[in-house]
Amino acid sequence: MYAVRKKTIYAILLLSPLVFIFLSLFIGRYHVPLPAIVEILWCKLTLGYCNLPDTYVSVVWDIRLPRAILGALVGGCLAISGASFQGLFRNPLVSSGILGVSSGAGFGAALAILIFSTTSYIYVFAFFFGGLAVLMSYMIGRVYNTTPAIMLVLGGVIVSSVFSALISFAKYVADPYDQLPAIVFWLMGSLASARFQDIAVAGIPMAVGIAGLLAIRWRINVLSMGDKEARSLGINTALSKGIVISCATLATAGAVCVSGIIGWVGLVIPHIGRMLVGNDNRVLIPASLSLGACFMLLVDNLGRVITGSEIPLGILTAIVGGPFFVYLLKKTKGGGW
């Protein structure tokens, strides 16, 4: 009975982002008849020839589909890394945004644009500074041991505001003609011009991060019991923590590289996941991945539907996420789990 239920949950988790991606294909300014959309998908997937206007094919296959896939990946990455950080630090109030990973990655990217003209170092820098930000937040959080949950959040606030300041500084010293637009464009992020090539490039760090977190998700369960307990169960805590942080940072850096700094998804989605599937990270981690993907697609589609000109993603996620964070603070009273 339990096994059947588990299978159903996994099936739903796997299918729902696909359904959302499929539905995203129907939304946009350009009117494509519904049967045409299905036909295009069918003939593209079977590698056949589409006997339809080029523009329809372009809109559905080259514009909407890559955008939807990338959006799902970004949402999934932010949510899964949020869930992992929450489990790892035994703290319901953290996420990659709160811990400063996003700002750190953003700064790394800006720095890479400043130093090198090519964009190939962006990911390396984003990853490095994202990781640095978590470590700094963690160290600040340990300064004061009485209220670890709040201190970690505070550490994150400090680190992310320092990195935001550094981002502003990078923008300030950047060349206003070439570098500044590149940095601004990059930090603002947008799924609007996503192409399959972008998925190929940005998808690698995101996929590696996701795969890593999925593979060691049971260890997060153990780690979330505390260091002593984890060690007594024979786990190399330092190594496991290192892997979790690296994977979560990699996933976040990949997401930031695609769509800029989008707050709150990583914080809110794992909690919704917990309401649905409970505290067990073995289920929660994949659930967060799936929910994050669906949520991002929902927000992106909303942003496209509400006004003719698109509303940037970060605005909508913050409007939903901010109040939710207050609710969490009240519910947890700033303490631990």
Partner: peptide, 21 residues
């Protein structure tokens, strides 16, 4: 047309451009 306004600049959406052709 309705354009996206960001940092003093106006941007068109890809589907809008296809629509205008």
């Amino acid at each position: 047309e309705e354009l996206k306004f960001l940092e003093d600049k106006y941007f068109a959406g890809l589907e809008q451009i296809l629509l205008w052709d």
